[in-house]
Amino acid sequence: MIYLDHAATTPMSQNAVETFVKASTEFFANTNSLHEQGEKSKLLLNQCRKEIANLFHADSQEIFFTSGGSESNLRVLESLYLGNKYRGNHVITTTMEHPSVHSFFHKLENNGVNVTYVGVNNDGQVRLNELEEAIRPDTILASIQHVNSEIGTIQPMQEIGSLLKKHDVIFHSDCVQSFGKIPINVVEFQLDALSISSHKIYGPKGVGAVFLSKNVKWKPADLLTTHESGFRQGTLNTPGIAAFTTAALDMEKEQKANLEYMRELRQLLLEQLSPISHLIKVEGDIENQLPHIIGMGIHGLEGQYMLLTLDRHGICISTGSACQSEKLEPSIAMKALHRTSQEAKRFFRISMGIHNTREDILETATRIVNCVYEKEGKVIGE
Results as ranks from 00 to 15, higher is better:
Thr9Ser: 11
Gln14Ala: 14
Val17Asn: 11
Glu18Pro: 02
Asn32Ser: 12
Leu34Gly: 01
His35Asn: 04
Leu44Gln: 05
Leu45Trp: 13
Asn46Met: 11
Leu55Gln: 05
Ala58Pro: 01
Asp59Gln: 13
Phe65Gln: 02
Leu77Gln: 11
Leu80Ser: 11
Asn84Pro: 14
Arg87Tyr: 13
His90Ile: 13
Thr93Ser: 14
Thr93Ile: 09
Thr94Arg: 13
Met96Pro: 12
Pro99Glu: 10
Ser100Ala: 15
Val101Lys: 06
Phe104Leu: 10
Phe104Trp: 13
Lys107Tyr: 13
Lys107Arg: 12
Leu108Ser: 11
Gly112His: 07
Thr116Gln: 05
Asn129Val: 08
Asn129Trp: 06
Pro137Thr: 06
Leu141Cys: 03
Ile144Gly: 09
Thr153Gln: 06
Met157Cys: 04
Ile160Thr: 02
Leu163Asn: 01
Phe171Arg: 10
Phe179Gly: 07
Ile184Leu: 15
Asn185Gly: 02
Leu191Cys: 06
Ser195Val: 10
Pro204Ser: 06
Thr225Gly: 00
Phe231Leu: 00
Arg232Asp: 00
Gln233Ala: 07
Ala243Pro: 03
Phe244Thr: 02
Phe244Ile: 01
Ala248Met: 03
Glu252Asp: 03
Glu252Asn: 13
Ala257Gln: 12
Asn258Gly: 12
Leu259Trp: 11
Leu265Trp: 00
Glu271Met: 04
Leu273Asn: 01
Ile276Tyr: 05
Glu287Lys: 14
Gly295Asp: 06
Gly300Leu: 01
Met306Leu: 15
Leu307Val: 10
Leu308Ile: 07
His313Pro: 01
Ile315Cys: 08
Ser318Pro: 09
Ser325Leu: 07
Ser341Met: 04
Ser341Lys: 15
Phe347Ile: 09
Asp360Asn: 14
Leu362Asp: 13
Leu362Gly: 06
Leu362Asn: 14
Thr364Gln: 08
Arg367Ser: 09
Asn370Gly: 14
